[in-house]
Design a protein around this nucleic acid. Structure first.
Lengths: 187, 187, 187, 187
DNA sequence: AATGAATGAGACTTCATTCAT
DNA sequence: CATGAATGAAGTCTCATTCAT
């Protein structure tokens, strides 16, 4: 029941926003009453927190598996991560949307648990860039932090426009982004 | 007074969000009463709409000035636009934040006025890419629409992390992004 | 301008109700501003009062002209009054509607001026009945007060359903009511 | 509690009017808070709607029982209905007042449910007149629709002046109206 | 004679949360 | 585990009225 509630809440939060979704909306979906909600969650914010934690932890886990893989080069790792991010929209797009958009509704204390993980996520990407530079696989004249933010912007932004059933598949979009990033668009 | 209200509202919306900012919050800032707000705006949503329109109209105007400039090449135009977008954060960052983040609070009818302009903004960038490809200044093996979305993601995402008083200036960030995009990050 | 305001207010009050019509609605109709309204009327209620007074005074005047006419019998007078009431809808229907429906929005002090006149109006009809009984023209076994209220109900109620452009004319409706009242509906 | 709320609301609406009665007024009467009101009713208008439906449905039910009675003649049925309408003031006068006076506060959609029933109410009376004419019990030279409206006016108008504790009882008033209607007032 | 900015009280409504059962 | 009644704070909005100009 708790998982079911999280599942449906993600859908509602993604669709209408956290503030715009009432507890009533959530329990209506499941044909239970508000009391039931408060049996499983201390507050609405705690539900949001649980969703955030679940999302970011899975993401990091997945990311670190890519990093740890000793058989791949850094450009290959970069490609994997880009693909993973774009791909996620199909499977976990709603989660991602909620994560990026509704984080500000968490309280200070809750954020303290989330922000370090979100930063770690960014640092993991940055690590790929830095190690790739050291390994001579990426150019060394660009600052790794800004490059990382550029890459994350490119991929994360796709949450705003990517249509799972659109013209281009996740694989194709990832390939295009990878090429742009590696070789540039200059002719 | 109307302008003053829009100004302060932008600050509050950027800081706390549209839904989280009450009319009371807005009028408190200006030491007037709620009635005064409704003297100038028919509703809270109309205020948001006014903010959106003002922002996107200025942006397009500016963008089309860059496009129309006959003395610059397409790569130069691209660089100008990237710089303009990143630069805006210093002067209009809050407006941008509100624009990207709070659009969903507009009603169908309001969106009908905004969305075509937002699309035109994207199409203007895409036009630079396409004309640049025709002119042989950009590579022709990447689809212009995805490339455009990649570029916009890179720049727009900076609204989430760019600190006007941070380590890197807007000019530097724009230059790095431009290099990444033109030459790629491969060594 | 004052008369114009009363005129338009009657239309709005009849259509939407006193409470539901705002000063703004009234001044919008005349393309002036709220300040102007308060130049001519001390308050919204005073406007309503003026409308009431104007209506009831005209009505009584008219009614007493019928009463004073020495050339007509009491049944004829009754017919005249019934006709006048039904007929008024075409020319003064809105005024009548406002009078009957919005009286309760007047304050105690205002009502003190209106109620005696409204009662006088009823008493005038009752006088016709009573004098007609004395003169042997109406039957004497029914109490004149209830008969009067029955007659007034019949005619006043027509404000709820009478359509000036409907199937029956005011003259026809008045004739039917008169026949019903005089001879009864029994076969 | 829901019934209690309707009961008290009818009193307040009858006394002060729908618009003039606030939710606060209603809940104050019951020593509960505004939230409670909205637990039972979706809106103020829905409450009004419930009151209307309850009233008109009971009325029609009662009326149709009179119609269906095979042991009574049409004049007797007419007398029953007149009595019932006048009588109702003692038991349901406030309901009636609210019904006739506050109907305009219902929205289009709500009215769509009420108006057919109100019309049916009128048609039931008209049916008595028409069948009574056919049966030779009422005179046939008056149009049944106007006669019906005259009768309803007479009785409904009594809601404006009838005092349950006044000089005449409901039974007496009904008898007087019945005589007026059947035999006329002519001597 | 008219304007337009401002007020402030009060309206309807929403909603996260609590708690006895 | 779950319900359903109740709360109370806060939110958006309306509007009659005032007043300096």
């Amino acid at each position: 029941m708790k998982d079911l509630m999280m599942e449906r809440s993600i859908q509602l939060f993604a669709q209408k926003g956290f503030k715009e979704t009432s507890i009533q909306d959530i329990v209506n979906e499941l044909n239970v009453t508000k009391g039931t909600f408060y049996y499983y969650f201390k507050s609405k914010q705690e539900l949001l927190m649980d969703i955030h934690l679940q999302y970011i932890e899975r993401l990091i886990e997945n990311q670190e598996a890519i990093l740890a893989d000793k058989t791949t080069s850094y450009p290959e790792k970069l490609h994997s991560i880009i693909f993973k991010l774009v791909h996620d929209i199909e499977k976990e797009g709603l989660r991602a949307k909620v994560f990026f958009r509704e984080m500000r509704h968490l309280s200070e204390e809750h954020l303290e648990q989330i922000i370090p993980k979100r930063d770690r996520f960014k640092e993991n990407v940055q690590e790929i860039i830095e190690k790739g530079i050291e390994a001579g696989q990426f150019r060394s004249d660009l600052p790794s932090d800004i490059v990382t933010l550029g890459i994350l912007g490119m991929t994360n932004w796709s949450y705003f426009w990517f249509q799972p059933d659109g013209e281009k598949s996740d694989r194709e979009v990832a390939a295009i982004f990878y090429k742009m990033l590696m070789k540039g668009i200059e002719s």
